[in-house]
Nucleic acid binder design. Sequence first.
DNA 1: GCCAACGTTGGC
DNA 2: GCCAACGTTGGC
Length: 166
Amino acid sequence: MSHWLIKSEPEVFSIADLARVRREPWTGVRNYQARNFMWKNMLPGHLALFYHSNAKPPGIVGVARVGGPPRPDPTQFEPDGDYFDPKASAANPRWWLVDFEYVATFARPLTLADLKADPVLATMPVCQRGTRLSIHPVAAGHFERACQLGGWHDGGRAPQVTAPFL
DNA sequence: GCCAACGTTGGC
DNA sequence: GCCAACGTTGGC
């Protein structure tokens, strides 16, 4: 588990926003499965496909990189915020996040229709009906195929993953 | 706006 | 622990 797909609504936070700020804490995830992926399975250096959801059209638009180890999502402690969780405490945080760093914007964005039309990518979770999970692992083959079709190459090398922390 | 999918909540 | 009700996601 070393390649990922992360969804973001571009009206809220787009790949262009990530390109501008370079690094973004992935706040507001309130699904346990998605949280567990960030908390337990992501390692700094892991690469993620950046997917625009609720977009016209939806699709994969670029690549991001896990920028550091997981840490408590600060928005769970903000009483006036949308993501406040009264059951969370500093001693016992409930929600964890990682930061994502900008890596690349695809020369050719891959719409959901494009993904479904490709024999390899059509089997990605995001192409299956009912897959709502906003963060999930993708197969290395899916990741590489998406980058190939999207026109992004990491110097012709396979994605590099940094040594595990901890 | 519709609605399928599916996660969460809460009564029992 | 079951499960009906409800809320959210997200494509279309």
